[in-house]
Simulated assay, not measured.
Amino acid sequence: MQALSLCSLRMVRGVTLAARDRGFNEAMLEASWIHADGQSIVLASRLTKAPLTERIATTDFFHDAARAAVRHGLSFYVLGGSETQNKRAVDQMLVLYPDLRIVGRRNGYFKREEEEEICREIRDSGADVLWVRLGKPLQEEWCVRNRDRLHGIGWIKTCGGLYAFLAGDSPRAPQWMQDMCLEWLFGALKDPMRLGWRYLTTNPYSFYRLIRYTKANPIFG
């Protein structure tokens, strides 16, 4: 049985895109699981009758998945990112987990008409788990669009900035900033030209939507 796991990432990208991008919102609704990769989502959930116990950051969860894969003999295929970043991320995975089976990898630069061939390559690799990093909202839409071409892949997992962290291109925020929902600020300070304006314009809107549309009973309401 195939599972499609999509992460909501942080308040800025997940909440804002779900409101403004119909394709992204529909893709998220197709997921088998959606997990909170941002502390702001966890805090908002505490206003409901089904609060989340903790965030599940993909950059942390990868290590749990890798250890489980080694223990059970499962294999990974690593898709997305630049060629250099993808290779460096895979190299680091094998440094951290020498017994991890990585049966294939490919960068994320390809045309839509190449997707069928790429999916065939992934199927033929015999991978159990496919990690996908194409950037939001492309990675979520790609996964939903191609899931029927990926028979035999047990789990398709979007992974945001995982490769950048593994490759050493993007350091994690200090733990205290993660706990205080300030990872966005850490990122903005590191890359103000790219992220500063994004956060300035989307953080307030995301915060508004979390307050306005969080339901007390999210499961039955």
Score class of each variant (00 low, 15 high):
1 M>A: 02
5 S>G: 12
11 M>I: 06
11 M>T: 12
12 V>G: 02
15 V>S: 09
15 V>H: 03
16 T>M: 04
16 T>N: 07
19 A>D: 09
22 R>H: 13
22 R>M: 13
23 G>Y: 03
23 G>T: 08
24 F>S: 07
24 F>Q: 00
24 F>K: 10
25 N>K: 14
25 N>D: 15
26 E>T: 05
27 A>P: 03
34 I>G: 01
35 H>M: 11
35 H>A: 05
36 A>S: 03
36 A>L: 04
40 S>I: 06
41 I>F: 15
43 L>A: 08
44 A>W: 04
45 S>A: 02
46 R>G: 10
48 T>V: 00
51 P>D: 09
52 L>K: 01
54 E>Q: 14
56 I>M: 13
56 I>V: 13
57 A>G: 13
57 A>E: 03
58 T>G: 14
62 F>Y: 11
63 H>C: 08
65 A>M: 07
72 H>L: 11
72 H>R: 15
73 G>F: 11
73 G>V: 08
76 F>G: 00
76 F>W: 13
76 F>P: 04
77 Y>K: 03
77 Y>H: 15
84 T>C: 05
85 Q>P: 00
85 Q>A: 02
85 Q>L: 11
86 N>L: 02
87 K>F: 03
87 K>P: 03
87 K>E: 12
90 V>L: 12
91 D>S: 11
91 D>T: 08
92 Q>P: 05
93 M>C: 12
93 M>D: 01
93 M>F: 01
93 M>R: 08
94 L>E: 10
96 L>E: 14
96 L>H: 01
104 G>F: 05
104 G>K: 06
105 R>C: 10
107 N>L: 01
110 F>C: 09
110 F>Q: 04
114 E>N: 15
114 E>H: 13
115 E>C: 15
116 E>P: 01
119 C>D: 03
120 R>N: 12
126 G>I: 10
126 G>T: 13
127 A>D: 06
127 A>N: 01
127 A>Q: 00
129 V>S: 02
130 L>E: 00
131 W>N: 04
133 R>N: 13
133 R>G: 13
133 R>L: 08
136 K>S: 06
137 P>Q: 05
137 P>G: 05
138 L>V: 14
139 Q>F: 09
142 W>G: 01
142 W>L: 01
143 C>I: 09
146 N>P: 08
147 R>I: 11
148 D>Q: 07
148 D>Y: 10
149 R>M: 06
151 H>G: 12
152 G>I: 06
152 G>W: 06
153 I>K: 04
155 W>A: 08
156 I>Q: 00
158 T>C: 12
160 G>L: 07
160 G>H: 00
160 G>R: 00
170 S>G: 07
170 S>L: 15
173 A>I: 09
175 Q>H: 10
177 M>H: 03
178 Q>C: 12
181 C>H: 10
181 C>E: 05
182 L>S: 05
182 L>D: 04
182 L>A: 08
183 E>N: 06
185 L>N: 01
185 L>I: 14
186 F>R: 02
188 A>L: 10
188 A>F: 06
192 P>K: 07
193 M>I: 07
195 L>G: 00
198 R>V: 10
198 R>S: 14
199 Y>Q: 09
199 Y>L: 04
200 L>G: 13
201 T>V: 13
202 T>F: 00
203 N>F: 12
205 Y>C: 06
205 Y>I: 05
206 S>F: 00
209 R>V: 11
210 L>G: 12
212 R>D: 09
212 R>C: 04
213 Y>I: 08
213 Y>K: 14
214 T>R: 00
218 P>R: 09
219 I>D: 05
219 I>N: 07
221 G>E: 03
